[in-house]
Design a protein around this nucleic acid. Structure first.
Length: 651
RNA sequence: GGGCUCAUAGUUCAGUUUGGAUAGAAUGGCUGCCUGCGGAGCAGUUGGUCGUGGGUUCAAAUCCCUCUGAGCCCGCCA
C-alpha cells in the first residue's frame, strides 16, 4: 500500500460518484495540488465535466462531493485511506489522506522486509547500447553524459527485474582509428608512451589532434589512410593486427574511465568483426526481399542501391563502387540487435569488471568454436529482445529515425527499436580558457567540444579535481580517518557528483560544462543526498546499533499512528511515492525524474532531522521514528543503486 | 533553402506530454540557528512583463500561428 493505492481509492470514489449522478465516465487526473493547504491530492474532474455540460465547475464539484463522495466515505468508515473530500470554490476537488490508517503501510513493509521496488520487468528482455566512443582517444565530459544515461537506465531496468544486457560498439575500422595508425606507421609518432606520464588513451587523443594538423599540408598521408582502412576491412594483414593491438589497448583504457564512474557492460561489439561476419549480406538480402531498397539507374544516385523514401530523402546504402555506407552498417547492426537474422557471432571473454561480471566481445563462429554456450549466446537465443535502446546524442537523430523506419518496415508488428537522444555537452568560456584554448569569437558564450581540434576536458581530469577537493574536505571533517578511507570516500563523492550532475537535467537540453560549477558541492548535488544518508545512519547507529540491518526492531511496540507531525507525514508521503516514480522514469526513459525525487526525499528527511527528535523521544515514539528512519535509508539506498551514487555511513 | 531542438529569478535549472488554485528549487546577496541525532545542514528574506506579438479558452509558462535569438542535422564522409 503506497500513494498509488490512495490514488486508486480516489478514482473509485469519483467513478462511483459519476455513476450515481449519471455523468459520463471520462478520463481525468488525480495528482498532488501545488500547495499543501489544498490537501494531499486533487482531481480536475469538475473542469472536464463542465466542458461537456453547461454547468460551473464549482457546482459540479459540490454536487459530486455532497451528493455521493461524502456518503461513500461514511460507508467505508474510519479505515478508509481518505479522511475527507472538499469541493474548493475554484472547482478542484481536494482530498486529505487518513494518515492513521495510511501510515500502517510502513509497518507492513517493515515486517515483511519488503523493498518498495516494483517488480514490473517480468523478465522482459532489454538491450541497451551506450558509450560507443571511437577507440582513438580518451573519454571527455560529453561522452560521460552518454555513459551515465545508459548505465542509469541499465540499473533501472535491472532492479525492476528486466533481463538486461549492455552493448558498447567499438568502431575499429573507421577513419578516426585509421588516423592514429597513419600517425604511428607513417608520420613518426611513437606508439609507445612510456616516457609520458599520461594514460595511453589520452596520449593517443593528443596525437590525433596533431595528426589532423599534419593532414593540412601532406596529401600523401591521406592516401595512406585509405590504404589502412582497406586493410583493416580485409583483416589478417600485419597492419590489421597492429590496429587490433592499438585498439585493444585504447579500449581497455577507455573502460578504466567508464568503470571508474561505476558503469559496466556485457558485450563489446567490434565493427571489423561485423564486416567480416557477412551480417551485411544477410541484411542486404532482407532489405531487397522486403522491397525497402532498390537499384537506382538514373539521377544523382545512378548505379547505387538506395533506401526508398517518399519524401525524397533517399539514402545510398551501397555506393556505385560496391562499398557499403555508414548507414548500411548501422542498419545491419540494428538488425542484429533485434535478432532479426541468425547470429553470426560467438563470444569470448574480454575482461573482468569492477562488479565481478565478465565483459564479452564478439568473434566469428568457426569450426573449432566451443559448443559450450556462454551467457550472451543464451540471451540472444531464447527469444527476441522486447526492446532495444540505442543511446546516441541528438546529432544522430535524423539517421536514427531512418533506421527506426527501416526496422519497422522489416518487422511491422512491433515497435522494439528505440532511439534515445540527448543534447551534447559544451564548454563554458571560462572552462575553455582554463584548458588554454582561445575562442574564435570572443562574444561566444559556449564552445562545442572537438576531439579533432583538441577542444575537450577529459573525464579523468574532472574526476581527479573533484577527488582532490573532496579529499581535503573529508579530512577536515574527519581527522580520525586514515588515508585509505579518505581516498575511498573522496572517490565516492567525486564519481557520484559527476553522475548526478549530468543526470539531473533534461535530455533535450544542452549542458554547458563549467569546471568551477562542477566542483561546487552545495545545494542540489549528490553530496546533499550522501550527507542525508550519513545523518540517518548516525541515528540508526546510536539508536539501536543495528547498522546495516534494517528490520530488526521489536515490531510489536511500533505505533505508526504516532508519526503524525506534519513534518513526519510529509516524509512518509514522499517515501510512499517511490514506486510511482520508478514506473514513471521507466516508462519515459527519463532518469532525471529519479534525481528530482531523491533530492525532494532528502529535503523532507533533513527537515525531519532538524525538527523531530528521534533518540530523545520516549521509548515507543523512539522505536516508531527509528523505523521511519530505517525505511528512509532503505528507499534512499535503492535510489543510490539506480543512480550509481555511493553511500557511506560517515562522510 | 528544408528539417529538428531550446528560450522561465543575477546565474544553473524544474514545471510544458494531459491548460486550472498565489509560477517552484538550487545558487548568489542579506538575516537568524551549533554544550542538542553531524552546520557539506535548517529556517527566513531578496529576486520573474515565463524571448516578442497575436490567436483559441471561463482559464495559457503549458495548445495553435508569427517573429527574434541560440544550437544541431540535411554527402556515393564516418
Amino acid at each position: 500500500m503506497t500513494l498509488k493505492e490512495v490514488i486508486n481509492q480516489i478514482r473509485q470514489l469519483v467513478n462511483q460518484a459519476l455513476m450515481d449522478l449519471q455523468y459520463d465516465n471520462i478520463e481525468y487526473d488525480v495528482s498532488e495540488p501545488p500547495k499543501t493547504d489544498f490537501g494531499d491530492l486533487t482531481t480536475n474532474i469538475a473542469f472536464l465535466l463542465s466542458k461537456r455540460i453547461h454547468k460551473k465547475p464549482n457546482e459540479i464539484a459540490r454536487e459530486l462531493v455532497y451528493n455521493s463522495i461524502n456518503y461513500q466515505l461514511k460507508k467505508i468508515g474510519k479505515h478508509s485511506l481518505i479522511l475527507n473530500a472538499n469541493a474548493h470554490i475554484s472547482g478542484h476537488i481536494n482530498f486529505n489522506i487518513n494518515y492513521t490508517s495510511f501510515n500502517n503501510f510502513l509497518l507492513k513493509l517493515f515486517k515483511q522486509n519488503k523493498s518498495l521496488i516494483p517488480n514490473i520487468g517480468d523478465n522482459n528482455k532489454i538491450v541497451i547500447e551506450h558509450t560507443s566512443v571511437n577507440p582513438n582517444k580518451a573519454l571527455h565530459i560529453g561522452h560521460i553524459r552518454n555513459v551515465i544515461i545508459g548505465d542509469s537506465l541499465y540499473r533501472l531496468f535491472k532492479l525492476t527485474n528486466h533481463k538486461t544486457i549492455v552493448l558498447n560498439y567499438i568502431d575499429d575500422s573507421g577513419v578516426q582509428v585509421a588516423d592514429l595508425i597513419v600517425a604511428f606507421k607513417f608520420a613518426d609518432f611513437s606508439s609507445d608512451n612510456i616516457k609520458k606520464k599520461i594514460k595511453f588513451d589520452q596520449y593517443c587523443g593528443e596525437i590525433y589532434v596533431k595528426m589532423n594538423e599534419l593532414y593540412n599540408n601532406n596529401l600523401e598521408l591521406i592516401e595512406k589512410r585509405k590504404l589502412i582502412i582497406k586493410e583493416i576491412e580485409q583483416g589478417n594483414t600485419e597492419l590489421a593486427q597492429f590496429t587490433n593491438y592499438i585498439v585493444d589497448k585504447i579500449v581497455k583504457q577507455q573502460l578504466e574511465s567508464c568503470w571508474r564512474i561505476k558503469s559496466r557492460y556485457d558485450l563489446l561489439v567490434i565493427e571489423s568483426q561485423i564486416l567480416l561476419s557477412k551480417l551485411w549480406e544477410k541484411t542486404f538480402h532482407l532489405l531487397k526481399e522486403k522491397n525497402i531498397i532498390y537499384y537506382s539507374t538514373t539521377g544523382k544516385n545512378v548505379n547505387c542501391w538506395v533506401l526508398r523514401d517518399e519524401q525524397n530523402e533517399e539514402k545510398v546504402v551501397i555506393r556505385s563502387d560496391g562499398t557499403v555506407t555508414y548507414i548500411a552498417k548501422d542498419i545491419s547492426f540494428a538488425v542484429w540487435k533485434l535478432n532479426l537474422v541468425d547470429d553470426p557471432f560467438t563470444y569470448t571473454k574480454f575482461s573482468l569488471q569492477w562488479d565481478k561480471s565478465i565483459l564479452w566481445k564478439t568473434i566469428l563462429k568457426s569450426e573449432n568454436t566451443n559448443t559450450h554456450l556462454n551467457p550472451i549466446e543464451i540471451f540472444f537465443m531464447e527469444k527476441r529482445p522486447n526492446k532495444v535502446i540505442t543511446i546516441i546524442d541528438s546529432r544522430q537523430e535524423r539517421l536514427q529515425k531512418i533506421i527506426s523506419r527501416v526496422i519497422s518496415d522489416i518487422d511491422p508488428s512491433t515497435n522494439r527499436y528505440v532511439y534515445l537522444g540527448y543534447e551534447t555537452v559544451a564548454l563554458s568560456s571560462n572552462s575553455v580558457h582554463d584548458i588554454g584554448m582561445k575562442l574564435d569569437n570572443i562574444n561566444k558564450k559556449i564552445i562545442h567540444m572537438s576531439g579533432r581540434k583538441g577542444i575537450f576536458i577529459n573525464a579523468d581530469t574532472i574526476l581527479d579535481e573533484l577527488h582532490s577537493k573532496a579529499s581535503y574536505e573529508v579530512k577536515k571533517r574527519n581527522p580520525d580517518f586514515d588515508d585509505t578511507t579518505i581516498n575511498e570516500i573522496a572517490e565516492g563523492i567525486a564519481v557520484s557528483a559527476i553522475r548526478y550532475n549530468l543526470l539531473r537535467q533534461d535530455l533535450d537540453k544542452m549542458i554547458t560544462f563549467d569546471m568551477k560549477e562542477a566542483l561546487n558541492l552545495d545545494g542540489d548535488t549528490s553530496l546533499y543526498l550522501q550527507y542525508s544518508f550519513a545523518r540517518a545512519m548516525r541515528i540508526i547507529e546510536k539508536g539501536d546499533g543495528s547498522l546495516g540491518e534494517f528490520y530488526n526492531i521489536n515490531n510489536d511496540k511500533i505505533r505508526c499512528d504516532l508519526l503524525n507531525h506534519h513534518i513526519e507525514r510529509d516524509l512518509i508521503k514522499e517515501i510512499s511515492k517511490f514506486n510511482i516514480i520508478i514506473e514513471e522514469s521507466l516508462n519515459t526513459l527519463n532518469p532525471k525524474i529519479l534525481t528530482k525525487y531523491a533530492n525532494k526525499l532528502c529535503t523532507r528527511f533533513n527537515s525531519f532531522y532538524e525538527n523531530i527528535p528521534v533518540l530523545g523521544a520516549e521509548v515507543i515514539l523512539k522505536l516508531s521514528r527509528l523505523m521511519l528512519v530505517k525505511i528512509f535509508v532503505n528507499v534512499l539506498a535503492n535510489l543510490f543503486e539506480i543512480l550509481g551514487i555511493e553511500s557511506f555511513p560517515r562522510i
